[in-house]
Amino acid sequence: MPALPLSRICYVEDDEDIQRIVRLSLERIGKMSVDVIADPAEAIERMIAFKPDLVILDWMMPRVDGPTLCRKMRERPETRDLPVVFITAKASPRELDELRALGAAGTISKPFSPKDLPDQLRTIWNALPAQRA
């Protein structure tokens, strides 16, 4: 279990409605600081600037999708070790295999409950090995 509680999160998502809901959920219910990133192209720079504990990526986005962005993060030393959680609408076996290959910390399936989202993320956070945080 990481030494510190989960408090800073970067969320990459193109859908503005969901962005708003997640932000409300994490800020109001989870009492966390959230940086919502709408454009994946500037995601990595924003992450480096924000220094999150954990990153949430939407699986399906136009231009650059979640897995591609995740691979890019792994190439940069600043973001290489950030735990990544994917939000996905369909968990097909192929996707699950890919997630494992990417070393994702966990998945949240759509539709998720904003009430439970902070707890779900904390469960994933607490399950992480201590040295990664």
Partner: peptide
């Protein structure tokens, strides 16, 4: 599957947030 779930995520999420009083 995808196109229906995405808007539903927003609908349910928004309503839950309202109903939870946050």
């Amino acid at each position: 599957s995808h196109e229906l779930r995405t808007p539903l995520t927003s609908v349910i999420g928004a309503l839950q947030l309202v109903n939870s009083g946050v």
